[in-house]
């Protein structure tokens, strides 16, 4: 017998979400949506619990999680970083900024730092093209970012955490 573990409160929460959708396998996407909303992400254990509640193979759950880019199996960092790769930001060097962020944080797009502080993602246009290239961290938007500014921006957050 192979056993994975999850805290009692999380299991209760997941059971409640499945119950809300009457444990209906046809509601899988809604259940996953709610579960990610409640827990932030969908690790293996969460998918196993949902599969067993909805009486479907966990492979099916995993298939859906990997099909939709909205679903994630890695937790977001405390400060989720989004780099805009929309046309305006892209032509003004957003890719260089992204590369610098990857180098500084030692993670790739879609990953989270070991200390759980930062996660890195790309987005398409935040509607602030006049400030291109744009990076948003948490709720805060940074405009006209250059690779040289990246270190300073991050150090403010590290400082806050001290």
């Amino acid at each position: 017998m192979e056993t994975l573990c999850l805290s009692r409160s999380k299991i209760t929460k997941l059971h409640a979400i499945c119950e809300e959708y009457k444990n209906d396998p046809g509601e899988l996407i809604n259940v996953l949506h709610a579960a990610q909303g409640a827990l932030g992400y969908l690790p293996v254990e969460v998918q196993e619990v949902i599969a067993s509640r909805l009486h479907i193979p966990v492979s099916k759950v995993y298939g859906v999680v990997t099909f939709y880019s909205f679903f994630t199996m890695t937790p977001n960092g405390k400060y989720p970083i989004s780099v805009c790769l929309g046309t305006a930001c892209y032509v003004r060097g957003a890719e260089k900024v992204l590369e610098e962020l990857e180098r500084q944080l030692e993670i790739k797009v879609g990953e989270t730092t070991q200390d759980g502080l930062f996660s890195l993602d790309c987005i398409r246009c935040v509607g602030a093209c006049g400030l291109a290239p744009v990076v948003s961290i948490g709720g805060k938007v940074y405009g006209r970012v250059t690779p040289e500014k990246v270190k300073k921006i991050l150090s403010d957050y590290y400082f806050q955490e001290k």
């Binding site: 017998m1 056993t3 409160s9 196993e48 067993s52």
Partner: peptide, 18 residues
């Protein structure tokens, strides 16, 4: 025969996660 079922158990509540 053996029990080879995969199940999700309950972890220690004092776990720092919560």
């Amino acid at each position: 025969y053996f029990d080879r079922k995969k199940t999700v158990g309950i972890s220690d509540e004092t776990n720092k996660e919560d």
